[in-house]
Design a binder for these strands. Structure first.
Lengths: 239, 239
DNA sequence: GATTCCCTTCGGTGGTGACCGAAGCGTCAG
DNA sequence: CTGACGCTTCGGTCACCACCGAAGGGAATC
């Protein structure tokens, strides 16, 4: 065994190498905090089994816990973990053509149009917002460098109601690149992108599709996207 | 088990979830084709065991074989696989501070400065070349879009001796983004980037460090990088 | 054609881990 | 204080798989 990195790589992969743990991580990708009991019911295993899985995921640094009374809440350990899972999933679109049913095809289609990725927007919508922000000069995203807000971008976010000073003090970067597994293109993550998702949800631009991470863009949302960012409805349809 | 994607994700992770298979993939990241026997000796397992591992990696679509006489050559199935492994490794720099020995520390340092990633340049060198190509207007890399060669870039590659027409007909894209696991920034992959590595190797700008994927930049290489791309020697030192 | 070499396939073994039910512990409600 | 609830720990079972040595098949060499 020559390469010392192999051990670490295998260890990380082992944490993901189980149907139940993978399902847990995918469920947590909606950014919400779940209780162990909910996750056990979702995946169809006994609470004791789920407890073991969660211990394993915690040890691997993939999920984090928050104790609250007699409940315990589980969340993804950080945005990097969410991005890691998304990246891994992006390899699955190749050997996935055997669509099992119309229902799963529709679900996948909905996910591809717009969805939540941890705490920001993803899918066709996420990529469209990203390129619109660059196109309108609000984000500077030159190669080899992380994306940054321009002066115009700061004004725009402030007009939306964002407290950029408070957001900038967080350990997490304001903007960050995240590879979109359906679009195969980067979209924006980070506190500013998370704020954008919050605004979109609060103003009713998007509404969650119950039971999945998918989002539906409302007519008000389409109008707002056109008005604020110049995104036409054609940009959100799948080819 | 609600999410049908969980099965695929777990399956892919399982293929990586073994020390020996992980070591194989890391070895193959140098872009060369190895024989099963070489890989068995490298990892210290019996040939029969290695055969099973390779069958497993093949089934997962991670490696490909080429029969040649009584030898069989194994390579990484494609550049996406190499990028996937690099991305996964990028999560390892967090829990890796316990450096086991001076030797591994030096090896890691060498890998961080310059190395091969499948068939292109990576590490500090790869990122420096990437940003220099953008800085000098040879590559256009705006946000949300794959990187593309500009007219000036095409001329530059042609002057280096590249046959861009032939390269463009390949199924693989000319340029492509690849996340660098030491720099945490994208560097360029794709046929054009692969050609650049070939040129650098042929002209003696970089020489491989035997036994690893690391590269050493020669004095001629430093001169060429400054002359062709305006990369100063300071850009290749680690902070 | 026989030999050599590389690799695979085939039994057999040992260790790891996913799973469950039962029991234990802390927290909140009555 | 008592009961209900949510979660974890423990013991035990079963399947899977990493590993090896031995045997077999195909390709090059003599």
């Amino acid at each position: 065994m020559i390469d010392p990195q192999a051990g670490g790589l295998a260890e990380l992969a082992q944490a993901l190498a189980d149907r139940t743990r993978a399902a847990v991580l995918l469920a947590l990708l909606d950014g919400r905090a779940w209780t162990p009991g909910e996750l056990a019911r979702l995946t169809g295993v006994a609470p004791s089994t789920m407890s073991g899985h969660l211990a394993r995921l915690t040890e691997a640094g993939l999920v984090a816990h928050t104790a609250q009374g007699r409940h315990r809440y589980v969340r993804v350990a950080g945005s990097e973990v969410a991005e890691l899972v998304e990246t891994l999933s992006s390899r699955l679109d190749r050997p996935l053509p055997p669509v099992t049913s119309l229902r799963t095809a529709n679900r996948r289609r909905a996910l591809a149009v717009a969805r939540t990725c941890y705490d920001h927007l993803a899918g066709r919508l996420g990529v469209a917002v990203t390129s619109a922000l660059v196109r309108t000069g609000r984000v500077d995203h030159t190669a080899g460098r992380p994306p940054v807000l321009t002066g115009a971008g700061e004004e725009w976010f402030a007009a939306l109601g964002a407290d950029l000073d408070a957001m900038a003090t967080a350990r997490r970067p304001l903007l960050r690149e995240c590879l979109d597994w359906t679009e195969r293109l980067p979209h924006l993550a980070g506190t500013a992108a998370a704020y954008l998702r919050t605004v979109a949800a609060e103003r009713g631009w998007v509404v969650p599709v119950t039971g999945t991470r998918a989002l539906r863009v409302t007519p008000e949302g389409e109008a707002a996207l056109r008005e604020h960012l110049g995104i036409g409805p054609g940009e959100l349809t799948l080819t």
